[in-house]
Design a binder for these strands. Structure first.
Ligand code: FES
Ligand code: FES
Lengths: 144, 144
DNA sequence: TTTTATTCGGATAAAATTGTCATAAATAAA
DNA sequence: TTTATTTATGACAATTTTATCCGAATAAAA
């Protein structure tokens, strides 16, 4: 569904958000530990997210990653997915044709667009804040 | 969403089905040409589908692949996806946790299972025959 | 029975993705 | 200003996925 990189990204964002809610900036090693993701790879992914402006970072002692409280309500999971996997999830053809087209669709197009659209809506209506509060409450987990 | 191999598999099955509806057995080169997939790779994939019993093959002159007319109504897209990609599409965690669990779910679980379930239902209710007749009618395409 | 056409299957290769490492750049504290 | 700590980044490595190649097996036709 999503790439490994994208899964790492979503988990990292959620964990960082929980810490930001407690005004704690987090180091990449801490992120890796709490998400079960490889540290160096996650660091690279965070670089991409930082460039796209959906996470803030600070180098040096007392540095790390953080997400502004206002931002984490605006940032939707769809933004993370788009930043890492691009728009293929939202617009790509289910059978891998180079373009999804209404005029000359692939055989599964009509069935596929419904599901794809619901996935998109789901991602667009779920904010990082929503997921971070769930994690804070302890009802969900990032590792297994 | 699906692996490349799975996309090749679905397209191949649909094309073979259209030919079987006209009582024509098709060679792998013909399949590759009409699906835009690499021939040798498709051949290997067909081997898997053949072992799983969702396509029939015959070696030698006048050999090739075919799908029994009764079977192509019974075979659903879900069967092809399962044969190639396994059950991760139906049961895998959206964040890549080693298991999707209701007891200790990941943060997106509740949102994700809905979409995943609709995808599953969609695949389970779409038969190879349905898609083959669409292709025969010329309203859809396998290549672009 | 021999020839020919085809799938089957294992070895190999190429490409993409995932992951690591080392060094540079930045920044805060001493 | 120097030092310690942390992110940033590009090169490299490992793994997985995708794709190719070729000889063996099979079966129809000549
Ligand atoms: S053309 Fe394939 S999903 Fe739209
Ligand atoms: S636990 Fe992640 S989708 Fe169910």
């Amino acid at each position: 569904m999503f790439s490994k990189a994208c899964e790492h990204a979503i988990k990292a964002m959620i964990y960082i958000a929980t810490q930001s809610l407690e005004n704690k900036r987090v180091k990449i090693g801490d992120v890796a530990k709490h998400t079960g993701s490889p540290e160096a790879y996650t660091a690279k992914i965070m670089g991409t997210l930082n460039k796209q402006g959906i996470v803030s970072s600070l180098t040096g002692p007392y540095g790390g990653f953080e997400i502004n409280a206002k931002m984490m309500k605006q940032i939707k999971v769809s933004d993370i997915v788009f930043a890492i996997d691009g728009d293929s999830v939202y617009n790509g053809c289910g059978l891998g044709l180079n373009e999804c087209s209404e005029e000359k669709p692939c055989p599964i197009h009509n069935e596929f667009v419904k599901v794809r659209s619901e996935l998109k809506t789901m991602l667009e209506t779920t904010s990082v804040f929503d997921l971070a509060t769930k994690l804070q409450s302890g009802e969900v987990t990032l590792v297994r």
